[in-house]
Design a protein around this nucleic acid. Sequence first.
DNA 1: TGGGATTTGTTCGTATGTATT
DNA 2: GAATACATACGAACAAATCCC
Lengths: 238, 238
Amino acid sequence: MSDSETSQENRGQLAYAALREAIMENALKPGTKLPEGDLGAHFGVSRTLIRAALARLASEGLVDVGKTKSATVAQPSREEAEEAFAVRRALEREVARLVAARWSPALEKTLRAHIEQERSASEAGQHKLSVRLGAEFHILLAEMTGNALLRRYVFEILGRTTLIIAVHGQAHPQADSLAEHLELIEALKKGDRALAEGIVDRHIIAVEDRALSRAEEEPAALADILTRFAPAPAPASR
Amino acid sequence: MSDSETSQENRGQLAYAALREAIMENALKPGTKLPEGDLGAHFGVSRTLIRAALARLASEGLVDVGKTKSATVAQPSREEAEEAFAVRRALEREVARLVAARWSPALEKTLRAHIEQERSASEAGQHKLSVRLGAEFHILLAEMTGNALLRRYVFEILGRTTLIIAVHGQAHPQADSLAEHLELIEALKKGDRALAEGIVDRHIIAVEDRALSRAEEEPAALADILTRFAPAPAPASR
DNA sequence: TGGGATTTGTTCGTATGTATT
DNA sequence: GAATACATACGAACAAATCCC
């Protein structure tokens, strides 16, 4: 009954949550191998539970599982990144509509308190905390729709896009997020669904741009690189 | 190398797919117990693979897994049903926008051919086939967006709503679906994104209404039933 | 290129917890 | 209400495939 044994039963969940956090914070870099044995040893559970955790992470797009190769931290391509942001926009537009329709002073209070946390974390230079709070703002909104399934989908797609930002993004991609979050609250307060929808849409596009715009292009194919040094592949002599 | 052994390696996938089909066609009624041992014996695999299949089905909302009780075919509540349809509408509106933007004669041809299949199945009274084709129409549309992740999300939410229709719906809930599908094609042909979005939205609302409108209300709680016979729970005597 | 060590895929056995008589 | 039977949770072991030197 000791408190240190509290998680004796759900270590599998713990492994899942810990890995998810580590991947989303870019502590585990994309491509990193995740051998089941090592993970099991670290978390003190058998491979069975680790396999379940990895399977779930794979279904959420955070790890890649080859056929009989080690699982690795996912490396979302540019195309997958754009797909994920497109889905996220569609889901969060719906969130904005629903929250605008059920707006109340209590919700406003909760959201403003959260933004205040974001601000202080940002001003204190707590980068990782700031990123996490930025994501939690969107979870909070999704919860306010009262639609548990929608919340779940938003939670999942946020994991994907957060990894993408970690992979493709730069140091401080959430620079203007605070102002955009405040702008959204004003629109929600007016109960203007279309406006709220539009603000969310633009906000997420801005997040995507900050993450992808200046990102280095895909590592060029070997042939492309060589072409720059030997402009025309010399036709067979003659 | 015999053909009968073709699936020697991925029987787990097979179990997943077979169970999914059976649940969506209402061959396995909601609440039916799914003991791992029996399933393993039937599919010729060990419980480990069955567990993985059940876990995936659970994540898709098609089965409920208690803590240490048998998994059962899910019984979506009225509330969960409404949540699922709300998410589905949001995703399919996005599908409509994207397809309208990339419309081409080739797509039209594919969709009309599919609808023709739907029509002949419907006229031949092939109820189950008709329902399946109706769902596949939406998958086809999602594929046409070129967004693989969006397709996946639509695939998943279609599983949920199809089960819901099987649970709450009546005999022929897709009666008018054909006409609505044709109407959508006309809108897509015009390249009118807003119109296509609206048609999809109304179409899914219609599907939901056909499934839920006349459905019997939730079995009333015992207390509610008794209340009708003993209006006020008599306060302790005196 | 080849061989050994490592890692995964799968199965089976034991303990734990629930439902039923 | 207690005891029995059953189904699941979890872990250990074995064979096949992969990776690395």
